[in-house]
């Protein structure tokens, strides 16, 4: 395995093992839930670069690896004049860690987005926590909710992290590139979990 492949791999592995201790990337709110619709859009809940990029990665991975008909991020961008915007998220505090409260989401804004896109499902994800770890590591925390329409009911949710350690292996990748690669792999994992849990993985 080359150093270029090794570094993101170990970083993600470490991250996922840490994340798995206390959080789950995606779980259904009702265990016997069966999806009724097919179209889905992924929305960044906060107007920051990390959130928008991560939403694109989840959207691309869901489009490739699930049976959902995923609206592309460029279509989302065109359909929502004010996208990305800040939607109040499902947490009480999100400073160093996310303290979730799934009832706090601004459902009016979520419904507005759904009406403009006309999809069966919205997966809204927020990236409120980003902090440096050690010398030049970055740790990001995300929280996401899957809503089913027309009822606007939450059918799944989860908290997950992504990060890059940056210093422990030879610097074969620029730091930003490493963060981006790790983010892409972590979001691919989240998309896989959403597809599996909802029974929409590709056969």
């Amino acid at each position: 395995m080359s150093a270029t492949v090794q570094r993101p791999f170990f970083a993600v592995l470490l991250l996922l093992s840490l994340t798995a201790c206390s959080y789950s990337a995606f779980t259904l709110t009702e265990s016997d839930y069966k999806p009724k619709g097919k179209t889905l859009a992924v929305i960044a809940g906060l107007n920051n670069e990390v959130n928008v990029v991560a939403a694109k990665y989840v959207s691309d991975a869901l489009g490739a690896d699930s049976r959902f008909q995923v609206v592309s991020q460029s279509k989302v961008d065109q359909s929502l004049p004010a996208y990305p915007t800040n939607i109040k998220g499902p947490y009480k505090y999100a400073y160093l860690n996310i303290e979730p409260d799934y009832s706090r989401t601004d459902m009016k804004k979520v419904r507005d987005v759904q009406q403009q896109l006309g999809v069966d499902y919205l997966y809204v994800m927020w990236a409120p926590v980003s902090h440096t770890v050690g010398y030049q590591g970055v740790q990001l925390w995300f929280i996401g909710q899957l809503f089913e329409f027309p009822a606007g009911k939450e059918v799944g949710n989860g908290i997950y992290g992504a990060g890059a350690s940056g210093s422990c292996l030879p610097p074969s990748l620029p730091r930003d590139k490493e963060i981006e690669d790790n983010l892409k792999q972590s979001m691919g994992y989240v998309a896989k979990k959403i597809a599996e849990e909802s029974g929409m993985q590709k056969k």
């Binding site: 009480k92 505090y93 400073y95 160093l96 860690n97 303290e99």
Partner: peptide, 8 residues
Amino acid sequence: RSEGEDID
């Protein structure tokens, strides 16, 4: 108090 409350 949670960590979030202390930071708040």
